[in-house]
Amino acid sequence: MAPSDAERIAAVLKGDAASFEPLITKYSPRVFATARRYARRESEVEDIVQEVWLKSYQKLSSFRGEAPFEHWLMRLAVRTCYDFLRGHQRNRETAFTELTAPETEWLDRFVTAPSSATEDAAGAKLLIDRILEKLSPANRLIITLLEIEDRSVKEIAQITGWSIPLVKVRAFRARAEMRKQLAKITKDKYL
């Protein structure tokens, strides 16, 4: 029988660094999926995930085992992604580039017949990625966790370390900023 996460962590803390490798193998897919929500370039994604694992190794002694290791790791991953967004804030503040062909096509379809613009279209995904990139780091984090990953306010407070009222205030602001960005895109194109 394979050792549990707790047993592996205990072994790592005793000095057996090799016991950390199975943990990386097991949880890397989830960490990669999380990092890809916040970074577009694959090199950036790999840097984020690498940082998550290095941090988790260095802070492993602070893991108390009260919650599953996965929860602790994902909290670390989200916080690392948030730091990444804040670090790359300047790159984000660039002017709107022209919409790509799939994005324009999807928007045109939505304007003419909203029901025909399906959610699985590539244009819709590109458009939401474009809008998320324009949001501030805190707003992007909130929209991703609350709206896209469908997490509760309490969960978000635990992940981010923010208070529940702060999460609510930031969620309100994030939705407002998102509507503003949407209005900007559609105004440029359709008004």
């Binding site: 959610e119 819709a124 998320l132």
Partner: peptide, 12 residues
């Protein structure tokens, strides 16, 4: 439009 785009992000 906002709801559609959020749904697109969830869907993909």
């Amino acid at each position: 439009l906002n709801q559609k785009l959020i749904a697109a992000a969830r869907h993909q």
